[in-house]
């Protein structure tokens, strides 16, 4: 059960091998969340992550494999994850949706396959997974969903607009879902990090405002306690993007980051 601080005792992590998800799992286990279902694409990495999580003190860790390019698989994957916990009489307190890919090569927009993949992995699959998770949590009577969105979806820019558009989609879907679930006992937290130093961004130029994976994890945990529906990491980005949203296109184009 989620306690008064929104701390869960069990969690399903979709995209468990992501750096941000790993940092979050570590914090959750330390807070007493010791039943986890970790779902990810790469079998080897997933097994290693399960080992690591067990070593940090989790008493129950199960793994599920999935590939987010197949939108329909989301239903089955979510069901499988829930079943792993519910069959043992445990509720699913938290669902984390963390899988995502960057897809912003200069000419990527010319390649329909890349566009499709980017939109599927970042928007379609997560949305179907959110829908399915929300239904199950609703039946359960309580639970929290955490979705990794991005500031890239708040003011879309030329340099990563396919990714940004997909994130804008999932961000909007998750916020709508939060509204739809009001009063149901199910909370949705949409996380909007700026630049985070993870595997995803290695090799890129680090902008003046950058966070670590653990900064994001800490902000998520704090957001659980405050029941925040939107979490910006770092928090200052709320104001930065409040302004960014207003800027005319000619000016936005000239901002280097």
């Amino acid at each position: 059960m989620n306690n008064a601080f929104g701390h869960p005792q069990s969690a399903v992590v979709l995209g468990a091998t992501s750096d941000i998800a790993r940092a979050l799992t570590t914090r959750l286990v330390a807070l007493g969340c010791d039943r986890l279902v970790l779902a990810a694409r790469d079998e080897v990495q997933l097994a290693a992550e399960a080992q690591r999580v067990k070593a940090t003190g989790a008493s129950f860790v199960e793994t599920v494999r999935f590939d987010a390019v197949d939108t329909h698989s989301a239903i089955e994957v979510v069901d499988q994850c829930f079943e792993a916990l519910q069959a043992r009489g445990w509720q699913v307190d938290l669902v984390v949706v963390a899988a995502g890919i960057l897809c912003d090569g200069v000419d990527d927009w010319r390649d329909p396959a890349v566009v499709e993949r980017c939109v599927t992995v970042n928007f379609s699959w997560p949305s179907v997974a959110l829908s399915r998770s929300a239904s199950s949590l609703h039946r359960q009577g309580q639970g929290t969903i955490v979705v990794l969105s991005s500031v890239a979806g708040i003011r879309i820019r030329r340099s990563n607009f396919i990714y940004g558009a997909a994130k804008a989609g999932v961000d909007g879907f998750a916020h709508g879902l939060a509204e739809a679930l009001r009063g149901s006992g199910v909370n949705v937290q949409v996380v909007r990090p700026g630049f985070v130093k993870t595997r995803m961004t290695t090799g890129r130029r680090v902008p003046p405002i950058a966070a670590s994976a653990d900064d994001v994890a800490a902000a998520i945990v704090r957001g659980l306690q405050t029941r925040a529906d939107t979490v910006w990491v770092p928090t200052s980005l709320r104001w930065v993007f409040g302004v960014a949203r207003m800027l005319p296109a000619w000016l936005w184009r000239r901002i280097p980051f």
């Binding site: 009577g141 309580q142 009063g183 149901s184």
Partner: peptide, 14 residues
């Protein structure tokens, strides 16, 4: 209904 205790810090539906 959504129920919570007097502290209103946890809520669940039943």
């Amino acid at each position: 209904r959504l129920l919570s205790g007097w502290g209103r810090a946890t809520a669940s539906r039943a």
